[in-house]
């Protein structure tokens, strides 16, 4: 049997992902995470000396603390199965990638297990970010 007949048959049975549900869920979960982030920002604005520019840092740190507990209790992956990109795009997704790898490789020891495997998933984000920022910053400083 030729490969492309197999491919067409397989294409017919590829289960369609529930796009509408996924998008709605990621909108709701992503939105509520950002709303939570805004509330945390407001809290820091009121009670600590952060201006609107610098309030992002403590907000991100607080969200990552929250992610650590959610990941540790095994709740985060259940939410993510429903939320999809809603829990991955916010910085909690980055935190979850780092923390879940750390927890996972704990049994291989802290130096070789956690240390060497921690950024296996989140490393791509950092590398692509830093490299693209470097290129952009160089271009901008040369032009301006």
């Amino acid at each position: 049997m030729k490969t492309d007949t197999i491919k067409t048959i397989a294409k017919k049975h590829d289960p369609k992902r529930p796009l509408a549900k996924n998008c709605l869920m990621s909108f709701i979960f992503g939105g509520s995470l950002c709303a939570l982030g805004q509330m945390i920002s407001l809290f820091y604005l009121y009670f600590f000396d952060f201006s609107e520019e610098t309030v992002g840092d403590p907000t991100v740190a607080t969200l990552i603390i929250l992610t650590m507990f959610l990941t540790g209790w095994g709740v985060y992956d259940k939410i993510a199965q429903v939320a999809g990109a809603g829990t991955m795009v916010p910085v909690t997704g980055f935190g979850n990638a780092v923390i879940s790898s750390a927890i996972e490789h704990r049994n291989e020891g802290f130096v070789l297990g956690v240390g060497s495997n921690m950024f296996k998933l989140a490393g791509s984000v950092i590398v692509s970010g830093v490299f693209s920022s470097f290129v952009i910053a160089i271009i901008k400083t040369l032009l301006a």
């Binding site: 992002g56 840092d57 403590p58 991100v60 740190a61 990552i64 603390i65 992610t67 650590m68 990941t71 540790g72 209790w73 095994g74 910085v91 980055f94 935190g95 780092v98 923390i99 879940s100 790898s101 750390a102 927890i103 996972e104 490789h105 704990r106 802290f110 956690v114 921690m118 989140a122 950092i126």
Partner: peptide
């Protein structure tokens, strides 16, 4: 400017590894 995100991810990753065990 981004040190907050990465530092807290690393620190709380190690603390998470200390506190928790993987559950399926």
């Amino acid at each position: 400017l981004t040190s907050a995100g990465i530092t807290s991810a690393i620190v709380f990753g190690v603390i998470g590894a200390l506190l928790f065990k993987p559950r399926s």
